[in-house]
């Protein structure tokens, strides 16, 4: 059974595009990345799955339950962390955590205390005194403390310092290893590349690529760094050219033989050819939908 399944899921805000014909399938137990720039439709997809907004057309299920007819049953097993965490002013962090647990009808005190300790969250602080990062931590604990079967995390790491980010992903990996499905929406691609097994790329409301993170990165493009005299513009499918002192670096998506022939007849002193990371690929191959699969 899929943890998340959408079929032609579409949401329009009046005439404004939200998402169009989104087809997604996330298996239970997966650590799934949902990649896209701001405004691409990531939050719209998530908010539709959680019943915060109604789809214009299409269908979707979460944990095998219909998002419209069985919303409450879905939310019993989903921990959600919104991109903009807002809480009731005047309340302390511990009151927010207790309210969240009470709304789930669960006693989450032990798990909440353990999470707060690992994330270094002071539960006696009032929410209006919290920094952006501490509001994020509060939202993380709210989402995780009930140990849900599915975690939906919308841009979770903004405002978190690197050490806390590492601790946060350690917690997610522990949960994932125990069977929790993690759906991580992010525009920080290295987060997805490091932690997710599969991912989907959304652009302007449409899924333009979906598959294993490795296959998404495998566009055939190479990062080529050359020292010595070389003009990459003479080659086809060259992107992201940057020049330094007697060096040039570029993404090359063309025939490797042609590249080698050109390099052989030029005054090259040194060559380094590597796999580009997902961020580079996303920036230069998915920005125009060219990498769609």
């Amino acid at each position: 059974m899929e943890a998340i399944k959408t079929e032609k899921l579409t949401k329009y805000y009046g005439k404004a595009r939200g998402i169009t014909g989104v087809d997604l399938a996330v298996e239970q137990g997966e650590f799934f990345g949902f990649i896209g720039p701001n405004g691409a439709g990531k939050s719209t997809t998530i908010r539709t799955l959680l019943g915060l907004i109604s789809p214009t057309s299409g269908a979707a299920s979460v944990l095998g339950k219909d998002i419209i007819k069985e919303n409450r049953a879905i939310l019993e097993n989903v921990g959600y962390m919104p991109s903009e965490a807002a809480f009731y002013p005047g309340m302390r962090v511990k009151d927010i955590l207790r309210l969240s647990a009470d709304l789930r009808g669960k006693d989450c005190g032990g798990e909440a205390a353990a999470l707060c300790e690992r994330l270094k969250l002071d539960t006696d602080r009032k929410v209006q005194e919290l920094s952006y990062g501490n509001r994020k931590k509060t939202a993380i604990v709210c989402a995780l403390q009930s140990d849900p079967a599915l975690l939906i995390l919308d841009e979770p790491t903004g405002g978190l310092d690197p050490l806390i980010q590492r601790e946060f992903f350690d917690i997610l990996k522990e949960r994932n290893s125990r069977g929790t499905t993690v759906f991580l929406s992010s525009h920080v691609l290295h987060e997805v590349q490091r932690n997710c097994t599969r991912a989907a790329v959304i652009r302007e409301g449409r899924i333009i690529a979906c598959g294993s993170v490795e296959s998404l990165a495998n566009t055939g493009a190479k990062r080529v760094s050359v020292r010595g005299g070389f003009e990459p513009e003479a080659l086809p499918d060259v992107k992201d050219v940057s020049r330094g002192d007697n060096t040039v670096s570029f993404l090359y998506g063309g025939d490797i033989k042609e590249l080698l022939q050109k390099l052989a007849v030029s005054g090259v002193e040194d060559v380094n050819i590597t796999e580009p990371d997902l961020e580079e690929i996303f920036m230069h191959y998915y920005e125009n939908g060219e990498g769609a699969k």
Partner: peptide, 14 residues
């Protein structure tokens, strides 16, 4: 208005 609806309605409360 206070952006707390997302917090509240993401819980299993009809």
């Amino acid at each position: 208005k206070e952006r707390t609806a997302e917090f509240l309605l993401a819980h299993p409360v009809s």
